[in-house]
Amino acid sequence: MLNVVLLVKTVVPVVSTVKVDEKTGTLVREGVPTTLNPWDYAAIELCLRLKQEYGAHVVAVSMAPPFAKDVLDDVVGMGIDEAILVSDRAFAGSDTLATAYVLAETLRKVVQKFDLVVAGQEAADSVTSHVPAQVAALLDLPYLYYVTNITHCNLVDKTIRVERVLEDENRVEEYEAKLPLVISVAKRQTYVPVSPARKLMSKIEKKVQIVTNRELGLSTDKVGLAGSPTRVVKVENYVPPQRACTVVDKPLREVVEWLLELIRQHGRQAQ
């Protein structure tokens, strides 16, 4: 049996609607609509494939305010077995390290048995890619980023073969690892539909378990703002540099000739 943890995140769809708390410099997430991080769909697809091919049992885990429960019911509605929403006022204001600590402790104390942790490449709103790596480091597990495929999984000797693409080096690599392992799945535009019937069952059968710090018992100086080593000192409005603009008012064919001339003047391939 392959036990899989799927780490998911809720994000703010239009980031510009977010207010920054002036005192703490953190995002004010209350009252802001959230959706599933679009880059998590590739991770969900991979988990559904692991269910099909290896009969994997998949638990989604997310740290978020209570209103994220609906998003996790969606995730179960997509075909994931169950979910854990880790939510507590004490966790508010956590940076990536404090978040990873809460998630790692949830895996250790609540999930307990797992062979593989799967996450999305990055969150569409913060784009750091930190948390999966930090969860791996805190659990003392190997970690691999940018995974495009699991090519083989041996459930008897608990080994796995994965492929990843490093786009900036034009390189495909293959790794063999002993389970457990933490991977994050390369982002890809994809979508997994929610089955309304499955979502309803998730709500009726309470497939989303809420875990608070009562269950986890984490020291409050290791979570939330107090447990976050990074501090936002100040936030300044960004004003893009302005240029004096000349409007080019010519027929398009002439514009093309003018552009080609500009290109000729400035064009020399650097290398």
Binding site: G25, P229, V232, V233, K234, V235
Partner: peptide, 13 residues
């Protein structure tokens, strides 16, 4: 952090 049109100044004290 241009989603919010801001530059955040962040330290690790």
């Amino acid at each position: 952090s241009f989603g919010e049109n801001v530059l955040a100044h962040i330290s690790i004290p």
